[in-house]
Design a protein around this nucleic acid. Sequence first.
DNA 1: TTGTATGCGTTATCAT
DNA 2: ATGATAACGCATACAA
Lengths: 338, 338
Amino acid sequence: MNIKDIAKLAQVGVSTVSRVLNNHPDVKESTRQKILEVIKESNYIPNNSARILKQQNTKNIGVLVKGVFNPFFSQMINVIGNIINQNGYTMILHQNDYKNDQEVETLIAFIKEKKLQGIICLGGNFADITDDCFKEINVPIVLTSVNTVSKQGKEYYSSVGIDNVKSSYDATSYLIEKGHKKIALILGEADDIGVSILRMQGYREALEKSKIRIDDELIIVGGYSSRGAYNETLELLKIRKDITAFFALSDIMAIGAAKAILDSGLKVPEDISIIGFDGMDESEYYNPSITTVKQPDKLMATMSINLLISQINERKENQHILLETNLIERDSCFNLLK
Amino acid sequence: MNIKDIAKLAQVGVSTVSRVLNNHPDVKESTRQKILEVIKESNYIPNNSARILKQQNTKNIGVLVKGVFNPFFSQMINVIGNIINQNGYTMILHQNDYKNDQEVETLIAFIKEKKLQGIICLGGNFADITDDCFKEINVPIVLTSVNTVSKQGKEYYSSVGIDNVKSSYDATSYLIEKGHKKIALILGEADDIGVSILRMQGYREALEKSKIRIDDELIIVGGYSSRGAYNETLELLKIRKDITAFFALSDIMAIGAAKAILDSGLKVPEDISIIGFDGMDESEYYNPSITTVKQPDKLMATMSINLLISQINERKENQHILLETNLIERDSCFNLLK
DNA sequence: TTGTATGCGTTATCAT
DNA sequence: ATGATAACGCATACAA
């Protein structure tokens, strides 16, 4: 069942059907009604691939999200989607498997397939951006909350994110100010891509600043899951009785670590303090509420899409924006000095 | 930059380029190399819309997920994706906005656009299935963990899910057996679509069986969020001091309720018991660990995709499978009778 | 082994 | 207001 069949059934030409499909004004009301009726009756649904293939100005904005269902991004997608709609565009959401490391290629394929007018990438590792890989793409690109290690090609895309080094420097310093010296760090991933390495750097710098020796045994990897953080924390607590604080690089891991501490017969925060990262609901509703580094997720979303739309309307120079994080003090950190 | 340009640059015909693109065997190794080189140099990426438009047998299986990032489905998608790949198919993941209630239409559009060989729907409300809406679609459809209220058209699709009524009947009975009589229920949504109504029915039946009066004031709505459940629970606890247990229809809401109880100066489970639903990690790592109704998510995923693939290979009669849930006893329920 | 030509389903241009 | 027809970018049958 295609547009030709509908045209035949309605006894009109294909272009008239197409006009109805696309809400063009110059169709007689009676023919419009008739065509709509035929469409309804035959359960006809246009083929989107053919549509996009032909269209020039799609009014589509793409959102490419890294990872299958990263809850941190879900709020941001809502914000972005609303603003896209308000501006008369349509959001096309696309997942990029976290195992797929061909970020740039996926990005370009997405733009081409959907004839996008602009794109926002949420997360992912864009370390392999080269000077010319975006040259042929002449739609604006905004990379949000991604790991951009590459120094190349910065003039071909915009970015919005946080200062990972400073954020974790601040969080670590906060613990140090409360008298903590044996501070364990829970990384997300072990390899050198991703944000963990940047945040670890902030952790290291804070310790060095206070002349605290960096103890590699205190740095564990939780795989961004509660389970991973739980297991690793449990093991670490068995061999190291001197730890007074944990800094987890995600709230999800902070929760796993908290449970491991409790299951070890210790109290949070009296025996061991915890600080998380992200500012997800889970940390707020935990018992006790977990102090965390809040990422400005909604602001990041708003700035990303506003930047993109302004770029679509008037090509200006690309911008690279770094937003402030905010340490939310709750009930999981103990002051050893009082 | 399209296939024609590549052909010109490589000084070959378009079909030879197409063959290389699709890994066809009958291309001379030297020409293949040359074409690949040209493709690499010009950063050419084929247009997927055009590809799909042309292809007949795509080997694509679609997964249509309801809601922006429902964490309950993320594990299932991994399982499904792996099995799809093992069988030589490609998974195409598509989000359906939770505000979009045109489930059937979205489903059919997705099948047509991507020329899918089969599809799994994760979640969503398919109450408006009619006898003929799937008739024209001759690819197998599996609805997994969806709300299928409609009795029509069952011969045109398969389904995999749990018995929502029985599951919540069992959970409520579990509380009753422990001596609880004033059991509050936290629904996900207030309207009559969705699973909340089925689970509420189980709750009602369990109370009726034990001759416990159903008190509508004890039934609140948490909107499937911790925050919603927290606020509603806090309010309810102010006006009702007689409640001894909460049954939340998701673990996320159970956590919010737990925090509200704690913030009201009460203890879990000594003062008030809690039971959740889903079996997510969050409930396990909460303090205290929350007793919950575990959905067999991985099994649902495995059965769904295996059923679909067997249907693709040999069209058999559609099946409707109901799996058992499992009540995981943890530390959030107190026995009043001991 | 390689090239030419046709059509997938739609939109857009140009007629009428 | 409406219809015929040429693209869109690709895969494939068929020819060579």
